[in-house]
Amino acid sequence: MSTKPFRPDVDAPKYEGKYAPYDIIKEGTIAIVVVGLLVVLLATLFGSPDERAITIKTWSNADPVDFATTALGELNGTTITAQYGAPYNTAAPGQNLGPLKLAQFAGVTIPVNTVRDFVIDPLSSQPYNKNLSAALAQWKGASAAQQSSWVSNYTKGASKMTWSNGTITVPATNTGPVPTMINSLTAMARSGALDQALVTGGGFYTTNYTKPLLFVADGTYLANLAQKQHLLGSQWGMMNETGSYPGQAWLWLYTFWYQVSPFSSSSNADVQVSALMGLLSLLLLLVPFIPGLRSIPRKVKIYRLIWREYYRS
């Protein structure tokens, strides 16, 4: 046999002591019954949360100005999605981990053009309406420079945007078809038609909600509701649940890093925290092979409690 010295954190002593009866099938059965009863008890006592999904319809009816401002943001390219970068578009280089631009490297695999996908295409899907059709024709016939000049003129007055008598009004001139487009999209949103237009972009069937979710997340309505439920990233929200239910408490370390420097103020926090958690997971995985780390249990001596009968005998 090997003449290697015995390494107490790697090798186990050969056990030549006593054995005791141990019925693992009975143990397993008891475990299933006890856990089953506990699950039914907890489910009966506390139930589970189910906050209804919001829709673009509820959002635009609750806060038409926030909706219209977001819609304008999709047009003038100022929303989170419009400025996202990969995998949605090339508007930004995305986050980097030192020299590694991982998102950019992976490329644009889920293309989203906020002007086309969130404004023009949904409006074009609407039944014939003289004003809207004229506005869309004017938009599509204009040069990019002309389009951006209309949008930028409208944007200048957007901070004074008001909602009354079912109309979004912005004090601005030389805005071309933009007011009609924003108003039509708002009306469409308030009727529920925009929810449908965004999901059915791919045809009859869909299981993909990328576009409506991105649109909703660009506004402040969803985030305001989330803040009330204490779900924001800055509120350790990753491990929280709606209501007073326990959440994904096992994500405590993942969400912890977002709260502390340098991650709390880093523009690359997402990729940095992911990388750090990947590294820490690897450390946990490799504990048996890491000198020092693998000696902790022997030095902490909690095992003396676990095996106290053994050491007593």
Binding site: F46, H230, Q235, N240, E241, G243, P246, A249
Partner: peptide
């Protein structure tokens, strides 16, 4: 039912829901 808004424990940087 635990559907009412939760309570939270704040302690320095720590911000935990009572349930968690």
């Amino acid at each position: 039912p635990l559907d009412n808004y939760g309570h939270y424990i704040h302690w320095g940087v720590i911000d935990l829901s009572v349930a968690n």
